[in-house]
């Protein structure tokens, strides 16, 4: 069983972080990020060509992370691979002991650095979850054919409580759990009001009992970065008060961390939130401080090393 799953099942408020593979073959980049995150997070998401920009593969980077003693969450998007390649890579990852998989659809390639590429989108994230669950629980490929061997994997998905149509968002979460998600990492929370409301809906539907919900947070370094996210990144909602607060701050970096810590404090109070997912993009070194100041340190110690 994956460590992340054990932590969540023991009812410990979980912490996950994120590390993007390098835009090149330099393994040291991942090692460095892992060294910064080790001990501060229970597991670390390794992104899959996020924002449709070519990077070292998530699969390979996950293996490096594991060597560094960090438990990886392998992200898989359906943008670039069809069901054949996805199942094949899934088997490979499971065989090599990757035990957390996050199923995503992925950002459209036209927003990335190879907009000329042909996309795949053979299946969507929900179908991806369903497919992996079928392989794990029923030992069947997507086409129904029998498969041999045991698979031990913890399946997750993303969800964005802030995107439109808002009223559909909790229902979409229900679908993800029904399809096989065991944990959910949400889009970064800046607007606690919308998030709280979404969680109310989630509880009304009893979804918080169907799996673990980890709320996403992003520490920002400046008002400029915040504004950029507000205006340019699809699916992120940022209240104006927050932008003003960052603008007024004497030390914006410190303020960004403070905001993040305060947000985590609030999230901890919300019934049904089982952990946080800290996405410190290109600022991995700040994660331990955030975890410490949020009262989430030390992290539980893994008694045994997870091996295949």
């Amino acid at each position: 069983m994956s460590w992340l799953q054990q932590v969540l099942e023991q009812g410990i408020f979980a912490v996950t972080a994120e590390a993007g593979p390098p835009k090149g073959p330099d393994i040291e980049v991942i090692r460095k990020k892992c060294a910064q995150l080790k001990g501060a997070a229970d597991a670390v998401n390794i992104t899959d060509n996020q924002t449709a920009i070519v990077r070292m593969s998530s699969f390979a980077s996950c293996l490096v992370a594991r060597e560094c003693g960090v438990e990886p969450v392998m992200q898989m998007v359906t943008r670039d691979r069809n069901r054949i390649a996805l199942q094949s890579d899934f088997l490979g990852a499971c065989a090599l002991g990757i035990q957390n998989i996050l199923c995503l659809t992925g950002d459209h390639q036209s927003l990335g650095n190879h907009p000329q590429a042909k996309n795949v989108y053979d299946i969507d994230s929900i179908q991806l979850l369903q497919m992996f669950r079928l392989m794990r629980d029923e030992k069947k490929f997507q086409n129904g054919e029998e498969m041999k061997g045991e698979i031990d994997v913890f399946l997750g998905a993303g969800e964005n409580p802030f995107a439109d149509p808002l009223e559909f968002r909790a229902l979409r979460l229900a679908k993800k759990f029904a399809a096989g998600a065991q944990f959910i990492q949400t889009q970064a929370v800046f607007d606690l009001e919308i998030f709280t409301h979404w969680m109310e809906e989630v509880r009304k539907l009893g979804l918080h009992q169907k799996g673990s919900i980890l709320a996403g947070v992003i520490p920002v370094k400046s008002a400029k970065a915040l504004r950029y996210m507000k205006n340019e990144v699809p699916g992120v909602v940022i209240p104006d008060v927050l932008v003003r607060r960052m603008e007024k701050a004497a030390d914006p970096k410190a303020e960004g961390v403070q905001v993040c810590v305060e947000t985590i404090e609030e999230l901890k109070k919300i019934e049904g939130v089982s952990g946080v997912h800290i996405m410190a993009i290109a600022w991995e070194s700040i994660v331990p401080e955030i975890v410490r100041r949020s009262g989430l340190y030390p992290r539980p110690i893994k008694s045994e090393v997870t091996s295949p």
Partner: peptide, 29 residues
Amino acid sequence: CAKSLLNGPCGGSKDGKCEVKPDRDCAWQ
């Protein structure tokens, strides 16, 4: 839908518009 999603909108749908082509309607809305 720019991603041919069959199970609901992606996380980028905003104000009825598609995250990929903001001058076009989000199919899922």
